[in-house]
Amino acid sequence: MAEPLRLLIVCLGNICRSPMAEGVLRARIAASTLAGKVELDSAGTGGWHAGEPPDRRAILKAAEHGVDIAGLRARQLAPGDYREFDWLLCADRANLRDVRARMPARARARAALLLDWAGVEADGEIPDPYTGGPAQFEHVYQLLDRAADGVIARARRELGLFD
C-alpha cells in the first residue's frame, strides 16, 4: 500500500474550526474508499488551549450533525508537523501567513487555505465563530461539510486514485 496522504487542519487555537474540520473529515473519509489512505490531525498556531477539549459550542454543533469531537484535544503547531504532513490546510489567511512564516527551508509539507485546496472557494476563509453564537458555528459547520466533498476529491487525485 502506498503512503497515506497526511493532512493537518490549522486554525488559531485548535478549539473551534480545526477540530470541527477534523471531525467532519474523519467521518466522511471513514465512510469513503479513502478509509485508511488519509491521515488527519488538527492544530492551532497558538498554544493557549493546548490539552483542552474543543469549545463546548463546537462539540455541540458537531454532535447535532452526528460527528463526535469531544475526545479531541487542542495542540499547537509543532516544528515536526512540517516534516510529518503533506499539507497544512489553514482556516484563514492569518493562519496561512503564520504557518508559512514558521515553515523551515526543508519542509515536506505545503500550506494552503482549506477551502481553496478543497475547490470550494478560491482564497476562501472559514470565519472564526469563537465570539459568535449558534448561527456562526452552524455556518462554519456548513462550510466544512461542503469542503469535505472537495477534500475527498482532491485527496483521491493526490493519491492517484481514479475510478
Rank of each mutant, 00 (worst) to 15 (best):
D145H: 08
L88F: 13
I69E: 03
A147I: 10
R56M: 12
M1Y: 07
G23F: 06
D128P: 03
P127H: 01
R73M: 12
A105F: 09
R73I: 09
I126V: 11
L5I: 05
P79E: 11
C90P: 04
A2C: 09
P4K: 05
P134C: 07
P127G: 09
A147P: 03
A27T: 11
L7F: 06
G124I: 00
C90A: 14
A35F: 10
D41A: 15
I15Y: 06
I126C: 12
D68Q: 08
D116N: 09
Q76I: 02
G133D: 15
C16Q: 12
M103G: 11
A21W: 04
R73S: 15
L40E: 13
A107N: 02
E121D: 10
R102C: 14
P53W: 04
A111N: 04
C11V: 02
L25E: 02
L89S: 14
E138M: 07
L114P: 01
H49I: 05
K37V: 03
A78Q: 11
S18G: 01
R100E: 15
L7M: 15
R6N: 14
R17T: 03
A27E: 12
Q136I: 03
L5P: 09
V24G: 08
K61I: 07
A91S: 15
V38W: 07
G36C: 15
K37R: 15
M103D: 10
I15H: 02
D92R: 10
F85V: 03
K37P: 06
R110L: 14
V120G: 00
P4L: 05
A147M: 02
Q136H: 12
R56Q: 15
D145E: 12
D92A: 01
D55H: 13
N95F: 06
G119T: 02
R97D: 11
A21P: 03
A50I: 05
A135T: 13
I126E: 00
G132R: 08
F85D: 02
G51Y: 06
M20N: 12
N14E: 00
W87D: 05
T33H: 10
L114V: 11
F137Q: 06
R146Y: 02
G150Q: 07
S42N: 05
R146E: 06
G47R: 03
L34F: 09
R28W: 02
A148H: 05
L159W: 01
F85I: 08
P104V: 12
A94W: 14
